[in-house]
Amino acid sequence: MLPAKTKSRSFRRKNIRTPGGKLVIHYSRRAPAKLKCSNCKKELHGIPRKISSKFKNLPKSKKTVSRPYGGNLCSICSRIKLKELRQ
């Protein structure tokens, strides 16, 4: 009997032809949604789309952007924010 995860559509399906000539289905988790800038809703760079179980094993530098507001605001919005904080 197939495992229960084959019913769930949160798993992505991929048809793969094996070296023996068979067609097999491979199941894998869908990638989470892209992160967006909280101000202008643009997609953020520098943050990988991974499942939380694999994301937590990454080093800190690969999970965030080292700038203040990194991983939350895009570079243009953070510049505007930092200029406002000057006064």
């Binding site: 080292s66 700038r67 203040p68 570079s75 953070s78 510049r79 930092l82 200029k83």
Partner: peptide, 8 residues
């Protein structure tokens, strides 16, 4: 004031 980079 530095705006860009890790010293921002």
């Amino acid at each position: 004031i530095k705006i860009a980079g890790r010293d921002a």
